[in-house]
Nucleic acid binder design. Structure first.
Lengths: 212, 212
DNA sequence: TCCGAAGCTGAGCGCCCGCTTAGAGCGCCC
DNA sequence: GGGCGCTCTAAGCGGGCGCTCAGCTTCGGA
């Protein structure tokens, strides 16, 4: 399960739950390499090199290259799901909750777009059981978003003829941010999040949107 | 597999412009394989095998495996751009043109999702100059959609605070259909196209939408 | 002081990759 | 009929891949 990632000093560090230190460095190197070139185009020599180690060192901490991808996918999905759920379960009406969910989910996919790319686009490189585990996590994303939209419809705040289809569209819109987002582009993750939250409220026909 | 688009007076099948026949069969096999496993995970032996030929036969028609990907990407993008432009330049107001553009673009990405996947997600496997060529084609997609939205804003039909951002979002939404669309799922390409056209009209705040 | 476990490296194994080459089959034009 | 060019195959080359293993270093505990 996803737990707090704090050192004794209290600082939050991205892959804090991965120990020992060498294993974490290898995993961070793998995320970089997979995001840049793709899983199949990345060699174990490249990963080890980025982590400042010999190729053989990788196999002390991970059984195979695929296990690295699996760990990255699981942790990444859990983080994204955590971000989404926190927003979905927050205080406020459906419109506020949906806006906050989209805002934070998009912010994560933009800010952590290297991880997000690996997590979203390398699923097929996993074996059947690892893939099944990840797919289950994805369905929880879907359920979280659908839940908010259903609440909004029930409350009469939203006008949505096709709840399942709209849910897919909203999630798809957010996830695809990981594909096109560019750190050197004109927008910050916060700005994209705000823009997308507004667009999604329009998609669900929210009766009263927060001021732009 | 859908191969034969019937000809009434000379209209061609999906990859009709690729000759000779053996080159076309190899290309179709490559599209299947790339879409299924990804470019880097696909071997030239696999492609040739699917086309019913020996591995060496591939190199009579294509200089390298990368050239195959390049040809697929170029033709695929040109087809998609053609679909989009035809709709963008059709008769009617901005709302009708935008709806038709989204409807047909989405229909293409759903119906031809194998090609679309290769075209959209394997761009990084291309060399610098081939990639530059494809990126140029993408910018034309962007310009086509932005043009319609600008028309709608100028005519007072749309309410769009951020035209560039909304353009990216609309295209992103359509393109990502290629990732999640499933032939065995509950929706046909036509249905997804209709749903998405409605959602996009909401996103741009179209004053009067066609009947749902 | 010594010992065993843990972490890591240099060397390298066996496999399969993209791609090449020599040559066979076959239709076409003179 | 015969040479030619196009298409295709069987065989295989060089190389880089994922991964392994023997052995070195480091270090905490008895």
């Amino acid at each position: 399960m996803s737990t707090a990632e704090e050192t004794s000093g209290g600082e939050v560090q991205p892959w804090g739950e991965v120990t020992p230190d060498a294993a974490r460095r290898l995993l961070v190197a793998a995320v970089e390499a997979f995001a840049e070139r793709g899983y199949h185009a990345t060699t174990t020599r490249d990963i080890a090199g980025r982590a400042g180690m010999s190729p053989a060192a990788l196999y002390i901490h991970y059984k195979t290259k695929e296990e690295l991808l699996h760990r990255i996918s699981r942790i990444g999905h859990e983080k994204a799901l955590d971000v989404l759920r926190t927003a979905a379960e927050s205080e406020g009406g459906p419109a506020e909750r949906l806006a906050e969910a989209v805002r934070s989910f998009v912010r994560w996919h933009a800010g952590q777009h290297t991880v997000a790319r690996v997590v979203q686009y390398e699923l097929d490189a996993l074996g059947p059981e690892a893939r099944a585990e990840i797919v289950a996590l994805r369905r929880q994303n879907d359920a979280a978003v659908r839940g908010i939209i259903e609440d909004g419809v029930a409350a009469g705040d939203f006008d949505v003829p096709d709840v399942r289809g709209t849910t897919i569209a909203v999630l798809s819109l957010c996830i695809d941010v990981a594909r096109w987002f560019n750190v050197n582009g004109p927008r910050t993750p916060d700005e994209v999040g705000a823009l997308y939250a507004d667009l999604v409220l329009r998609m669900v026909g929210a009766k009263s949107r927060p001021r732009p």
